[in-house]
C-alpha cells in the first residue's frame, strides 16, 4: 500500500489498544462530540488494558507502527477490579524494555481515559501523534520489508 500522504509527506502510524469499558467508549464519545484528532491513530478493542500483552506492543513496532498507546480505565475504576493495576506495572517495565532494545520509550504510552472523557481521548491522540511525529519514523525495530 502506498503511504498516506499529507502536505508534510510522512504521517506516523499509531496503534491504540483501548479497553472495551472505558477508553473505547471514550473514543466513541470523542467521535460523537466531533472532536478531531489525527487519522494516524487506529484503535484495537480489547476487553481490558490488562489484556494487552507486551508481545502485542513489540509486534506493532516490528510491523512498522511508529507509536503505541494503551488506554484503560482509571486506577480503581477497572471493570474487572484490578486489570489496570497490572497494566500500570507493565508500563514501567515496558518503557525500560524498549529503551534497552533501542526504541525511544516516547513511542509508547499508557493513558487512563474513562468513558466520559472524550476530550481527553482526542487530546491524548493529538499529543502522542505530535510526539511521535517529532521522533520521526520508527526505524529502530521495524522488520525489513
Amino acid at each position: 500500500m502506498s503511504q498516506v500522504g499529507t502536505a508534510a509527506g510522512w504521517e506516523p502510524t499509531i496503534v491504540a489498544f483501548c479497553c472495551n469499558w472505558c477508553s473505547y467508549a471514550g473514543a466513541d464519545l470523542a467521535g460523537i462530540s466531533r472532536l478531531a484528532y489525527p487519522a494516524s491513530l487506529r484503535i484495537i478493542r480489547v476487553p481490558c488494558s490488562g489484556r494487552v500483552n507486551p508481545h502485542f506492543v513489540l509486534r506493532a513496532f516490528q510491523r512498522g507502527a511508529d507509536g503505541v498507546l494503551v488506554a484503560g480505565c482509571h486506577p480503581g475504576d477497572c471493570h474487572y477490579t484490578t486489570g489496570n493495576y497490572f497494566t500500570r506495572r507493565r508500563y514501567l517495565l515496558m518503557q525500560r524494555l524498549l529503551e534497552y532494545a533501542g526504541v525511544n520509550p516516547g513511542r509508547f504510552e499508557v493513558k487512563w481515559i474513562s468513558g466520559s472523557e472524550g476530550p481527553k481521548f482526542a487530546q491524548a491522540a493529538r499529543e502522542i501523534t505530535a510526539r511521535v511525529r517529532a521522533l520521526g519514523p520508527n526505524r529502530e525495530m521495524r522488520d525489513e520489508a
Binding site: Q3, V4, R42, H55, F56, R59, A60, A65
Partner: peptide, 12 residues
C-alpha cells in the same frame, strides 16, 4: 486474533 489485528492495522 489480536496479533492478526496488529499486523493488519500496521500494514501500509
Amino acid at each position: 486474533q489480536l496479533l492478526a489485528e496488529v499486523d493488519a492495522v500496521c500494514l501500509k
